[in-house]
Design a protein around this nucleic acid. Sequence first.
DNA 1: TGCCATAATATTAACGTTAATGTAAACCCA
DNA 2: TGGGTTTACATTAACGTTAATATTATGGCA
Lengths: 335, 335
Amino acid sequence: MAASLKQLAAASGYSINTVSRALRDKSDVNPKTKEKIRTLASELGYVNNNVAKSLRTGKTNTIGVISADSSNPFFAEVILGIENTARQFGYHILLTNTEESPEREREAIKILLGKQVDGLLLMPVLQQYGSCDYLKSLSIPYIIVGRWLPGLEDHSVISDEYEKAKEATLYFIKNGHRDIVHLAGPSCVSSSVDRMAAFRDAHIETNTPLKEDMIIETKGHLEDGYHEVSSLIRSEKHISAIFAFNDLLALGALRALKENGIKVPKEVEVIGFDDLNFSKYLYLSLSSVSIPKKTMGNMAFRALLDHIENPKAPYTKKVLESRIVYRETTLVHEP
Amino acid sequence: MAASLKQLAAASGYSINTVSRALRDKSDVNPKTKEKIRTLASELGYVNNNVAKSLRTGKTNTIGVISADSSNPFFAEVILGIENTARQFGYHILLTNTEESPEREREAIKILLGKQVDGLLLMPVLQQYGSCDYLKSLSIPYIIVGRWLPGLEDHSVISDEYEKAKEATLYFIKNGHRDIVHLAGPSCVSSSVDRMAAFRDAHIETNTPLKEDMIIETKGHLEDGYHEVSSLIRSEKHISAIFAFNDLLALGALRALKENGIKVPKEVEVIGFDDLNFSKYLYLSLSSVSIPKKTMGNMAFRALLDHIENPKAPYTKKVLESRIVYRETTLVHEP
DNA sequence: TGCCATAATATTAACGTTAATGTAAACCCA
DNA sequence: TGGGTTTACATTAACGTTAATATTATGGCA
């Protein structure tokens, strides 16, 4: 067992409190005493027990991060941004994944509350009922990252994805595409809802007919993009453009197109979403909506920290600007 | 502030201890009492304070995970495996990144010790001095994931990468390649050391001359692969095959080759390492050494748990089998 | 009936820390 | 020289939990 304040006190002859104050560099301890105690502490390998400290102070300097899937490069990048910023401010993160399951989300919240985290950063799924009320009753601050929940919009740090999704769709429509496939994400994810709505609205606003079977809901995984587009091609449905909910789907789609000898961007143009690190290094560098992922993580943590330090502060929605990068999977590079 | 045992005790008329024992379903509490206390607890929204519990029991049910870069898909996948398994066993993870910096590694260990984690899972960098001694003096169990440290080999959960790196290199040599570039990882990372050694040894054992400037040390990032191969091509050095330390480097390399009109695999064959999720969906599906990443995370946690539950148990090195998947960036698919 | 076992609960102490309060000596100046 | 201030420490209590121990009532049995 590592040394405790009690042992340092015994060894130094000072009281526990003096040792504690010395190590925390408080004012009314003699500099010489501080010095003596500090050397002793490092000799004995003293490590402050944060569990005890947290119990006493009511602060853990730990936040909970509830992600859907931390191995998804989008989340991974956001989480990296969170972790980096958190560490700079002396916070650490307890990471847990839900795989978009509402049950696991609640479970995670409960456990993290039990662990007395100072705040929560979460990427929640939309739910019929329950979730919001549950969150609203939380006594600790929380920020929703890259998503929104109805009635809790002010808790979000998010990108302007509706606008950019519409812009991407309009790009296709303006370029004459009439058979645009939307590889959508899960309907329980707000970003998927937004991007799909934008896709629809772009059609409506331009009076472009939209066949419902061109919207394909997926889980947003690599394989989904590949399989959905493969079977689309097999069914001999005409496709002239693909707007993917994320770059993973787009990548899967590109592979399916290639395997079927369909030329990108000549025969089919593709735009993805998220602009993952690898997207611009692909054989055909992928046109995508670029979301500042690390910045999003950074801002989310800072927003959370604000509320941790100032619990009465009102929440305000923060919107990050994203931009479409037109690369080799689209014909026009500067539309 | 959420309800505490004290408040439950006051509200129920029972003592704190009885409430505590009731909620933990201990034997000598009357079933009816348990029932009453439990309903009361859920009415008042009682959440067990794990900080207090940990202080009392000396267990946090939390482990520290020290990764180099959790946004690197390899680590992200391993970490997902860790987190999933940990959660199943009632553990949670405190995640922190070092970006391969020894200082940040020590810093992280110190902080996590302060947070009283029950064990440590780490991907450490090789160091001239210090690191090992520091780890050896740790009083909590620790497992090294996907890497090794001299003198601490028994703490590792690792793959048979030396063998597979040699096999990959031998594949190139046997196919007549004499100008094989090795895009190496950082020299402070054991896996990079192993893969590079295997690359050398394959040359030595087959009496194949190896030019030193064909081994290029990088940080293992996507951009590195792209830039190094680009400048290699610019320098008009002849390349006939590329063995990359990881798939990110390979992806960057592939892009550089494509931009320069070099045909893969006809003119240059490429083998990567890690077999990331997206590798087989690339335009040219990438030949790679497939490491069971989630399994590695899973096994690492279980090994750690073994030592948490049984601190005297001796450590034993665990080696996972990897295998080379020959895809479209190599000429022969079943060598 | 008296004794012992058992069931059900209460009391006490402790985990390691910090904050609030207490105390004693030294110092200062009128 | 004696009152108050300052400096440097010590003491006490508390955070919320759990484990060990103590207590009380109840039931069974000889």
